[in-house]
Nucleic acid binder design. Structure first.
Lengths: 210, 210
DNA sequence: TAGATTGTTAATCGATTAACAATC
DNA sequence: TAGATTGTTAATCGATTAACAATC
């Protein structure tokens, strides 16, 4: 829907705003000014006001922003009222960690299935979801229509499984494999998480301190 | 050392360059032009040349860049020839995943110790490293002098443990806890990985496709 | 009303892209 | 030499910051 001109830089900041506002709300804040929020988040007040004005007028002159109102507006923009059904491919340590620790509900998703190829793992459970054989993916998708997938599989299988998943109706990928997923198909969303690159950046950070 | 004017945007791209060049090298590439690399990475040739010129002249007119030479130069800039001793705090699923799947050696680090507070976990092993009781951190640091730490502990303990670790000589944090670590102390490097924010961004990506 | 703080425009800053002379 | 491709400067684009009138 809103494909208007919200820049990528702004969007990347929205989840963090949403998170901070949630914490403020939990701590009993009712209102907050751009100046105060800027201080807490390490941004400038100007930037915060510019950001929030991309999608309408949420504040009130002389008062500031209503914390819970603003938070729920940002939640709507992020699409968090939908709970997109999501599956996990690869139930190794990382897949297991994500399945058990990520708060899918509050991020706009619901984890509905877990798949792996290794016989020792298949049949086990993570939370209350049973790990299925990846060969039953077709039947599962026909029945449950998941729309998003987490990729925690070996690099070598990523490309093949991605094609398969797209054929099965998956439109969004949270990619943890060791390569950059770039899908040519239009209408597919991809979020690459490259943990190795993140650690490498930290290495530079150490070196450049003196 | 080189605290010159390498912008943050460039630095964020370096690990990815390093990775792509490694793959090219593995595939037998000896030379590559900025145009060809741009195509493979989804960047512009101009940007690549600008980026590489931040730290000297690595290419050769009429020829392009030597793949392995360029890669090792970027490796030096990133500080990957050092193997900074690193410890892991928190050996739950996520900590376990990182300890077993991350290629520390190629990212400028060496994992030298793992700590947890839970009696059921302490004494176990991940790879060939024994999980220690977090109470022996002081002795361990006095002996092994780790300089970096991975935080995979509950949010509630993050602030306290961070202070403790800084006192023990840790100068770099790879932070997976559910809050933004901002260290006031000068001379501390932090890389926050907020997986929840990443997933939230994907939610927006789905919604904004139409 | 007076004080505070937004919404918004204008100014600045930085990053990306385009262009081309230098040179291998 | 001719062709290719860099290194680098100039032009463009976008994002951040500053400023202030509008208004609660």
């Amino acid at each position: 829907m809103s494909k208007s001109a919200i820049s990528n830089s702004v969007i990347r900041r929205l989840p963090r705003y949403y998170r901070f506002l949630g914490e403020l709300e939990a701590n009993g804040y009712v209102r907050i000014s751009s100046r105060e929020l800027a201080e807490k988040m390490g941004l400038t007040a100007s930037q915060i006001r510019q950001d929030f004005n991309c999608f309408g007028e949420f504040g009130q002159q002389g008062y500031g922003y209503n914390v819970s109102g603003l938070r729920s507006e940002i939640g709507k923009i992020l699409g968090l009222e939908c709970k997109t059904p999501m599956i996990l491919l690869g139930a190794g340590n990382l897949g297991r960690a994500l399945a058990s620790h990520i708060d899918f509900q509050n991020r706009g998703f619901e984890l509905v299935g877990i798949f792996d190829a290794s016989p020792e793992i298949i049949g086990g459970k993570i939370g209350d979801i049973t790990i299925n054989d990846i060969s039953v993916l077709e039947e599962f998708c026909a029945e449950h229509h998941p729309q998003a997938a987490i990729l925690c599989i070996p690099k070598t299988e990523a490309s093949r499984e991605t094609d398969r998943l797209i054929r099965l109706g998956i439109r969004a990928f949270w990619n943890f494999t060791h390569y950059d997923l770039r899908v040519d198909h239009k209408g597919i969303a991809v979020e690459n998480v490259h943990l190795g690159d993140s650690l490498t950046t930290l290495s530079y950070g150490i070196k450049s301190m003196d």
